[in-house]
Structures are given as structure tokens and as C-alpha cells.
Design a protein around this nucleic acid. Structure first.
Length: 424
RNA sequence: GGAUAGGUGGCCGAGUGGUUGAAGGCACCGGUCUCGAAAACCGGCGUACCGGCAACGGUAUCGUGAGUUCGAAUCUCACCCUGUCCGCCA
């Protein structure tokens, strides 16, 4: 969410931000409307507060007179009239304010200056690691998974629907092994505090991180309770400190959590849906960092390197994409996608998205910090990223480490967790 | 799910419908004292919005939202949350 003062005093910066995302046409009239509503709102606030001040003064005088046994009927009539006017003006104010609030929640974040303009064709490979195998030299993961009894997609579809995976045998254990590897790495080597969080959260939390109001159709919602299934642990982790003022000396603060993630993928039907490429429920280890604004660029690089470290340990060649403005997520100011190469399907698969949100989420969720005792609270910056999302890592792993005899070699770092050096 | 007791500032804790943003204490910050520290004493100390270059002024805020009233932390209603007891349950 953007500061209404920024919109008011620097509407051009907001327009420029929307232009870089390729959305100026869509948002220009809404920006104008916001400015208009802000003007209305401030005019009405002044009118309301002027009358409230008058009422407060008069009411106190009523009290004084009554205590002294004097008559106050005239004052009371006067104040009653003021009250009616206040009621009317407040209704006006609520209308302007309500529309303005709704609009402010609709603007995406303004991307950072070093983010390239344009749509996804303007994405930039920032760096890469390892040498990808030639595409098409090995079988796709769904064939390997079925042959080794790791995946049972038909039964997943039977009990839940397409896009719901059943892992079996070493396939199931592989989930556990990967999660433990990642959590151990981040808590023991990278300094993250581990959390275990609810999978269902309320509407306020979903608004706080920016999933709502725009993307409600992508979320699973419960029928009888006002709760949503989380699409990522980013939601509970970030909202943990909503409405709080953190101690500046405790920043940056880093949290990690494993969670199941639920996504309806409403707009993605039929696109890259085979095997493990796009599923409705998956496990993921998430990293979140809270920091002071001046540190966020550096903290973003640090978090991204933590996610990369997992791929390096697993020996999976990957590239780091700096997303162009038009491809950058709604709440994000700057995003690196980590893509791992899956030689069986012959594609780069997104396994992590590491974003710097600036104060965008912090404003929505009201997460602040006090730089030092006696100083004013400021909004924190939030940064998060997957490290990593499991299904596509599993896909790449099976394909990359497939052997001519059909078995799958286990990368060194994973062996203690999986309890074997080969899946057969 | 039923019954019952509660939700006041960073924390604890007063508060009769009328100068209550809210006593008191703790914590914190600054100062005096001291070689230094502690203690003691003095002063300061929530957040947000509106107006103003600023000084400052105004408004709101006692779980949330409505309502009664000239006026609500205080009265009414609904909801949320917490404690306790009962029921159910992995």
C-alpha cells in the first residue's frame, strides 16, 4: 500500500511506477480519482473536527453549569444540532475514506530503479551457476517417479483432484529429507529463527501481505469460517508482527518456516501442469527478513544467496533472473526468481522468488520499528523468498540425477537425510 | 459447543456519565549528586490523522463495531479475544 501523502505530493512518481509496469493506462484514472477523494476527505475532516471541537467545548460548559445548578437548555439544543451535522458529515467522510482506502489497496508496488522496464521478455539473467545438461537426454520426472514408485498421481487425482500429489515410499521420505536439509541449513548456518505456523489465516493477514483484495479467486477459502488456506508461509510469518512496533536493535530479524502451501491456480489451467510442474498443494521452506529501510537492498541480496545455497548443496544448475517491472509481483519492488534446469522436461523451473517489498507490506500490515529509544516509529522493510519450493526441486533432482540403469543418484548433502545414496 | 469472569498506555494497575490522554507504580530517556556506579531527587516519556514553514492548535484513540446522551473508558447491543469450569476430541 502506498502512503496517501506520497500519492498527493508525488503523484508523478506513482504514475511513473505504473508506467514502468506497463499499467499506466489502467491506473492513471484511478490515481486522479484518489487525488480527488483525498481532497474531499481532507475538506470534510476539517469540517467535522471543527464541529467536534465546538461540541466538546459546549458540553464541558453544560457540565459546569449543571454542577452549579444553572440552566443549560440553550447550550444543549445547540450541541444537539451540532451532533446532527457531525453525523451527516461523518457519513460523507466514511464514503470518501472507504473508496480511497479501497483504491490504495489496489495499486501495485513501485518497482526499484534498477528493475528493467517492460514485460517478462525484459527479464534479465543476473547470474547462473553450474552447467545444465542437454535437454531431452533423460526421461521426465513423472516417468521416473512412476517407475520407482515415488509418485502416485492417479490416486492423488482420485482422492482429491488433479494437481494433488501423492508421494510414496522414498518419494514421501524425500519430502521430509529436503525439508530437514533446508531448515537445518537456514537455522544453523544462516541465522534464521524457525517457526511453525497456522495454515489458515484470517482476511486481515491476507490483506497485510497483499494476496487480497486482488487475488481472492486464487485462494482456497473455508466454507464455515472466515479463513483462507495460505498460499505461502510468507503470509503467517510476515503478519506475525502486524500492528506491532519492533525494537530497532533487534533488526534485521530473520524467520523461516516450513509449511504446506495451497493454490487454486485459477488462471493457469492447462499450462505446464504435467507431473510436479504446477500443483494445488505443495511444501515449501520460506525465508522472511524484517529490516530497516536503508538495509533492505543488501538484505535482499543476502536472502537470495541463502536460497541459492540450497541449490548449490543439491548440485542443481540454476540461473537467477532479475524480473522486469511488468513481471514483478503485485507487492514487490524487486524480485529475483531462481530457476533450476530440468533436463527431462527441458525447461527452466521457477523454484524460488526472492522479493524486496520495501515498506509496501509493512504499511498494509502496520509493522513498524523504533530506531532508538525516544525516536518515532518507522515502517520496516520486508523481504522474503522460498528456499525452496519442493515439487519442482524434486522434478529437477530426479531428472538431473537419473542414471542409465533407471536409478537416481542422491546428492551428497542429502544422503544423511534420506538415508541412502541411491533411489532404486 | 454450554456456563462464567475478564479485556485500560511498553508492562502492572486505579478509574462515581462531566476540564480523564486517562491516578499510582515499573520500565525507559535526560539531568543533579558521585572518582565511577547504585540509591535518592528533578524533569521527560503512547499512537494516528487534519491544519500550519514552524512554534503550535485541533480531532480521534481505554478489545472491535454500532447505539443511548448536550457529553461515554464508564450505560445498552452485537462481535472478537483471553482465563476458569463442564462437555466433546487427536
Amino acid at each position: 500500500m502506498h502512503d496517501i501523502r506520497m500519492v498527493r505530493e508525488n503523484a508523478d512518481a506513482l504514475r511513473e511506477g505504473m508506467r514502468r509496469r506497463g499499467k499506466l493506462e489502467q491506473f492513471a484514472p484511478i490515481i486522479d480519482r484518489a487525488l480527488e477523494l483525498d481532497q474531499d476527505r481532507r475538506t470534510t475532516i476539517q469540517a467535522v473536527e471543527e464541529r467536534k471541537a465546538a461540541r466538546n467545548t459546549a458540553s464541558q460548559e453544560v457540565g459546569r453549569r449543571k454542577k452549579a445548578g444553572e440552566n443549560a437548555d440553550d447550550l444543549m439544543a445547540n450541541t444537539r444540532a451540532l451532533g446532527e451535522e457531525i453525523t451527516r458529515l461523518e457519513a460523507e467522510l466514511a464514503a470518501s475514506q472507504g473508496e480511497l482506502d479501497a483504491i490504495l489497496l489496489e495499486f501495485p508496488n513501485i518497482t526499484a530503479l534498477d528493475v528493467p522496464e517492460g514485460d517478462e521478455t525484459a527479464n534479465v539473467v543476473a547470474r547462473s551457476w553450474g552447467t545444465p545438461m542437454a535437454a531431452g537426454t533423460v526421461r521426465p520426472h513423472w516417468e521416473i517417479g512412476e517407475a520407482l514408485g515415488l509418485l502416485d498421481l492417479p490416486r492423488g487425482a482420485k482422492i482429491s483432484g488433479s494437481g494433488f500429489i501423492v508421494y510414496r515410499g522414498m518419494g514421501a521420505r524425500l519430502q521430509r529429507a529436503l525439508l530437514n536439509l533446508m531448515l537445518d541449513l537456514h537455522t544453523q548456518q544462516h541465522g534464521y529463527e524457525e517457526a511453525w505456523v497456522p495454515l489458515f489465516v484470517n482476511r486481515t493477514s491476507m490483506l497485510g501481505t497483499g494476496q487480497l483484495p486482488k487475488f481472492e479467486e486464487d485462494m482456497y477459502a473455508l466454507r464455515d469460517d472466515a479463513l483462507f488456506a495460505i498460499p505461502t508461509a510468507e503470509v503467517p510469518l510476515t503478519n506475525l508482527f502486524g500492528e506491532e512496533i519492533l525494537d530497532g536493535s533487534a533488526l534485521p530479524h530473520a524467520m523461516t518456516a516450513f509449511s504446506a502451501c495451497f493454490r487454486r491456480e485459477a488462471g493457469a489451467a492447462g499450462k505446464d501442469t504435467r507431473g510436479l510442474l504446477r500443483v494445488h498443494q505443495f511444501d515449501k521452506v520460506e525465508l522472511v527478513r524484517f529490516c530497516a529501510p536503508e538495509d533492505s537492498a543488501e538484505q535482499h541480496e543476502l536472502l537470495t544467496s541463502h536460497a541459492e545455497k540450497v541449490l548449490q548443496l543439491l548440485g542443481l544448475p540454476y540461473r537467477v533472473l532479475l524480473l522486469a517491472a511488468g513481471d514483478t509481483g503485485f507487492s514487490s519492488a524487486k524480485t529475483y526468481d531462481l530457476e533450476v534446469f530440468a533436463p527431462g522436461v527441458g525447461k527452466w523451473l521457477e523454484v524460488s522468488s526472492c522479493s524486496n517489498f520495501g515498506d509496501f507490506q509493512a504499511r498494509r500490515a502496520n509493522i513498524r520499528y523504533r530506531p532508538a529509544a525516544g525516536e518515532k516509529p518507522r515502517f520496516v522493510h520486508t523481504i522474503n523468498g522460498s528456499a525452496l519450493a519442493l515439487p519442482r526441486v524434486v522434478a529437477a533432482l530426479l531428472e538431473q540425477y537419473q542414471q542409465p540403469d533407471g536409478t537416481v543418484l542422491v546428492p551428497e548433502a542429502l544422503r544423511p537425510y534420506l538415508g541412502t545414496d541411491r533411489i532404486s
